[in-house]
Each structure stands twice: as structure tokens, then as C-alpha cells.
Design a protein around this nucleic acid. Sequence first.
RNA 1: GGGCGCGUAGCUCAAUGGCAGAGCAGCGGCCUUUUAAGCCGUUUGUUGAGGGUUCGAUCCCCUCCGCGCUCACCA
Length: 505
Amino acid sequence: MTDYTQLEKVRLQKLEELRAEGVEPFPTRAKRTHLSAEAIAEFESAEKENKEVKATLAGRIRAMRTMGKISFAHIEDGAGKAQLFFRANEVGKERLDLFNKMFDLGDFIQAEGVMFRTKSGEVTLHVHDFHLLAKSVSPLPAAKDETLEDGTVVRHAALEHPELRARQRYADLAVNPDVRETFRKRAGIIKSLREFLDGKGFLEVETPILQPLYGGAAARPFVTHHNELEQDMYLRISFELYLKRLLVGNLEKVYEIGRDFRNEGVSFKHNPEFTQLEFYWAYADYLQVMELTEQMVSFTAQQVLGTMKIKYKENEIDLTPPWKRLEMREGIKQTSGIDIAEYTSAEELHKAIRAKHPNKTPDPKATRGKLIDFLLSEFLEPTLIQPTFLYNYPRDISPLAKSIPNDALTVERFEGYVAGFELCNAFTELNDPLDQESRFLEMGRDYAEGDDEKHPLDEDYLRAMRYGMPPNGGFGMGVDRLAMLLLDKHSIREVLLFPALRKEE
RNA sequence: GGGCGCGUAGCUCAAUGGCAGAGCAGCGGCCUUUUAAGCCGUUUGUUGAGGGUUCGAUCCCCUCCGCGCUCACCA
């Protein structure tokens, strides 16, 4: 049984009284002729010709000011806010009392009348009749907006508690218009990505989320169980192995936008489920993928924000192509003073780091690849504010990427960095089934020691590859990260409608 | 998982080892052009949960829960 607060009990009481007076608090149908902004715009042009504008508006009551025989209210709908003006002369004293006493902030209302301009100049609906559309039983967090003389809006007593905002996103959205705007823009970002890739001839596909084996990334999966098949299933950690199977099937350009699941830590840039974009492009290599990437991201910024110059935290960032290209080895050398090419074993590289940076302490068990990654994130990554492609990566941290001709230790891989964080990851894909098999086996050995990240060998993937896979370039990008970047949000939770939270109680 | 911090009314936030407060919201009034409307009056709390110290704990201590920041993890 729900425990109602006193405020809720008051509203439930009103609800009963309304019913007793024959007013249905949750009527089945509503009517609306104009959005608030439409009615206001229509009035503003009709005003000059002294023409009347009739309108029926519908929305949620956000402010009420009752003053005896008149009342004002603001409602909010999908297009913004509009003021309602009630006067006993038109609606009658009883109906005005009903409004004043029985309607609350948060209720949905339908009001019809004629648009006019108040003494203070606000275009307002002069209400002739009104109906309750839905009663709000629980009071929404009572934000109040104050409009200063210069037009800036200051919100008082807004819902700010991060947990509550995430847990009760419905309330957050209801009272914080900027949050609604964030998610509209997020939808725009995803739409633009699709528009871009569709325009380049890519086919959007859907591959299994529930998989008998997981792969394509080094992450711990979520495990579940299929009762009838009597087998464990995994939620995918990447799309890669399935999308590349499609290249074997002669689909030459494919992409998927969907959810990945990784059973890892939660942080300001990690959520257990997140939206990923991956594409695979037959006959292309990582250099062509680079060009497509900078076009795609800048296109999205242009579509959604109307500019390629964005702000992230204190940085002005220009996404206009071409982006800077920096060889990873060179970047690490410049920022850490260590040339990784001079140290071909983990042991030597450890020694070099200790000598050059005694106060930095990488994991003593780290492989050479992990050490390079350490140098990258420690020294180079924070400097990559303007969009930069970091390219050519050590082979042993890239088991699905193809080696550079004549350089067995380095693979054709790049990562795109913006604002100091990794945005995307791409490579010339490995398509040699024999090489792929030995890499998988190698990886199996590596992970055997660090038990909880054991990596299953995907025999079916190898079987597919043995039929022949065209050379291709592949790409992956965290869409949530892109949304954070473009919308200047500093936590992934701000761009996820319902981020993962511990269950209540 | 580790470290640090936070949790007080519906919302935003104050305060104190000695009756827990403000503004807004709510409730009762007044008010026919307001817009954080105003004025008069008024209600609201398991101070996140449990335990301990104390004459007395919201405050000090312990445990737990949740959140935030951070580190680790995340090719």
C-alpha cells in the first residue's frame, strides 16, 4: 500500500471532491488546437489587423497566481510556455473557485479562449472554458523561474539532486526544460549519424544482443540463461564479430547502432549498458576510415548544433576536418620523452619508465602493450584537446587488427581523441583466418593468468573468415561519449535517460 | 573494489551535545492585469537505517544503505 504524504493526501482529497462534483480527474479525451508557441505567433501577426485568435491549449500547470476574482497560470507544453488568464466575468465565480481551489501545480489542463496581450505585455490566453485533463497526485519538485530585466531566467529551488534526477528522470524532465532539450539533441545526434552513413551507402543491420559466445572487446560480460535451450547466454560486449561475418556474406558496407553491455565499473564515462556505433567497410583501410570519421562527426555537429566549433568544459574545440594525425609512437615520445620503439620487451620498457619518471608507477605485471597504454593515458591523452587521430598501435593490445606491412609489432589502428578523451577506435581489420586463429590462441594464453577475463574462442567466426573476408576497415564509437562531447556534458549520466543505479532500499 | 565527502520538511538549503529553522510549495483568509505576484494567519520532520557513548545525540563513535568526487578496472 502506498504511503501518501500529507501533501498527497490533500490532493487525493481534492480528487475525490472533483469526482463528487461530477468532474472526471482523468478524462479519456483531450482537445488542442494550438501549441503555445503557435498561438502566440498567430496572435502576434493577427494583432496588427485587430483580428481575433481563438485557441485551445493543453499542458501542464507550472505556475498559478490567484488574485480574488482573477487568476493567472502558466502552462507548459511541447513548444514552451503560455500564460492563461481566468476572470470571473467569463468563466463564472464558481468555476474560478474550482480552478483556484481544486487545481494544483503539475495538473494537466485544457483551456479554450481568445488570445490577448496583458497590461505588462505578455501574450496570454483569455480563458472562456477549461477542463482538467489529468490530476497530479504527487507534487513535482517546485521549481520557479524568475525572469530578470535582461531576460535571463533564474530557476529557483530547482530539482538538482543528481540521484533523484536520474532515478526519477520523469520528474527531472517535467521540471527541467534544459534536460528535455539535451535528450532531443541526443536523438538528433543519432539521427544524423544514420543520415550520414545511409548517405554513404551503408546498410543498417541488427545482430544478436543475446549471444552464445561474446567477443570483439576485452570486457567481462553479463551472463544469463536460456531455460529451454538449457544454455548460458551472454549479452554482447561488442558488435564486431557479427558485423564482420556479414562482410563474408558479401554485404560490403554495414553498420549498427545499438546497446553494448559490459560488466565493469561505473564512472562518469562508463555505464554498464551504452550505445555503440560500429561500421565495417569492405575494400577500405584505416586511413579511409579516418577521413570518414572526421566527416561524420563534424557533419553531426553541424546538423545538431549548427556549427563545428564547440565548447567542452573550458576548451574551444574545432571539429572541422581535417583533424590532426599523430603517430602514437611520436606522440608518446613528445610527451613522455620515451621512444617505445627502442624498448621491444616489457622489461626494458618498465626500466625506461622507472628511469625517466620515478614517481609514475605502472602495474609491475603489465605487458609491453599495457605499458604503452599507460604512457598514452598518463602523458599523451590529456594533451589531445583538439580532435586528433592517434595511429599505429602495438599488436599485442589489438588482436583483431591487421599488421602494418613489414612491421609485425605494429597494427593499422587509430583512436580518435577529443577534449582529452577517447571518442572512437578503428582499424584495418584482420581478415587472415590463420593469423586470426593464432592471435585468439595467444590472447587465450594472456588471459589464462588473469582468470576473470578469459576469452572464449569463437570457432564460428573463424569458420566464416575461412570462406574469405574482403579487406576492410572497421570503426567503433561510443555514442554516449559523442553526446557528452557535443552537448558539453561531463557525466555519462547526463546523456542517458535512465542510467544504471543501485536498486532502491 | 579502495580513498575522500555528503544524506535535515514536498523542493532549495541553514543550524546546534540541550524544545530543529528559513524561503518556496501546502492549508485558511484578502486581492479584477499578475508573472519568483503581494499581504495576514497557519501546518509539516523516524534529521537515510540500525546500534553505541552520554543525564541528554540530528551533531561524537561503529555498522549498513544510497549518492557524489576520485583511484583502480574498462585493448
